[in-house]
Design a protein around this nucleic acid. Structure first.
Lengths: 197, 197
DNA sequence: CGAGTCGTTGAACGGAATCAATCGTCGTGG
DNA sequence: CCACGACGATTGATTCCGTTCAACGACTCG
């Protein structure tokens, strides 16, 4: 969704470039002139900020569908390093081009604002989820959140490990708690679907 | 910073209204026609989404300086309930007015995009912090992040309890770990400042 | 002066991470 | 076509550390 919308801001796909990255390969470093913003097609990109003490802080881990380095739009340089953790393909959106579009076409700007707003909302709710200590509670809240309001069904679009990562839990914990919820009769599971009862 | 920037989108402060809320008082309910977006001046607003099973999921807790319900700009109705947890004052920005401004003035739209981008980045890094299990590691990363790059100083602008909340730790844990870091000689503390050595 | 809250430390408990092992599946290459 | 390796899914046992409960001094505000 992210992706589609960033793409859709460009009237021609000419300006969007695709790039393949090997594991460990860097896209840019802190201080480099910022010329593009990006989105992950497939794979994983890690953004790290080197600190003055020599360590580095992970700022963001972008997976398939996520955009990253949007802040580059309003900065002359990148503020962190970006590298692929695994074999990864990304889309590259030229910053100047995007700025031009946003300035010239109010409806595109509005579209982008809508995209960013929805990202903000989604991030806030993910953060709020993390405030729930109990694994079982957190999982239930998450399921309630993503379930279809009517059918109360959840299509498992990711692997359980990926869900565990999103929830901030060890995947073993997620397996266990799902099993518990199941025996309690609170949820039903098949390979592809969870239903909240 | 949030606040200032949302305010600054309006050419006249005429359209911005201030509102005082008592603890437990609701601002809007899910399904209400959305006519405004908001920011907290002082106090705390809680956004909850009622789920079909009757429980409710906290979507966001907005504290002083935070804006909320921005997604209302692009929706006819609110998607959650909002209420004050404590005595709270908020700013109210009329949605139609804001949309008009964003459409008519590209530089205002750009300003808003910049604001949202920085929120996205900040939220992502907060989320990433929560992936660090060890309290001490998480605290150090956080300190490195907000420290002045040159002086390595951190001015304590919030109470320790508020920092603990931001970090997703019990405040007792934060006290303890700060004490440990101090005896280890990794940080220095006074009442108002922490220095990373 | 008393209520409330922050800052701080102690002790104990509980639950999630971690390590480990097994099984099934999928893709790959010989 | 099968053997092999990689990885996801799953369950068991153990450890550890952050939460929780508790108590106390200091400070502020009404």
């Amino acid at each position: 969704m992210d992706l589609k919308t960033l793409d859709s801001l460009f009237n021609s796909t000419q300006k969007i470039k695709e790039q393949i990255l090997l594991p460990g390969e860097y896209i840019f470093y802190q201080g480099d002139a910022s010329c593009s913003i990006f989105a992950v097609i497939k794979g994983q990109i890690c953004l790290e900020r080197p600190t003055s003490e020599g360590r580095s802080v992970i700022m963001h881990t972008a997976n398939s569908g996520d955009s990253f380095a949007e802040a580059a739009l309003f900065s002359e340089t990148y503020h962190c390093n970006a590298f692929a953790t695994i074999s990864t393909s990304i889309h590259t959106y030229p910053k100047q081009e995007l700025l031009k579009i946003l300035r010239a076409e109010p409806d595109k700007a509005e579209e982008y604002i809508a995209l960013l707003s929805s990202q903000v909302r989604s991030l806030r709710s993910k953060l709020e989820l993390r405030n729930i200590l109990s694994a079982q509670e957190r999982i239930m809240q998450y399921l309630s959140l993503i379930a279809d309001p009517v059918s109360k069904e959840i299509k498992l679009t990711m692997t359980i490990k990926e869900y565990a990562n999103e929830l901030g839990l060890a995947h073993e914990t997620l397996y266990r708690e799902l099993a518990k919820l199941q025996t309690k009769g609170i949820i039903e599971r098949t390979k592809e679907i969870i239903i909240i009862k």
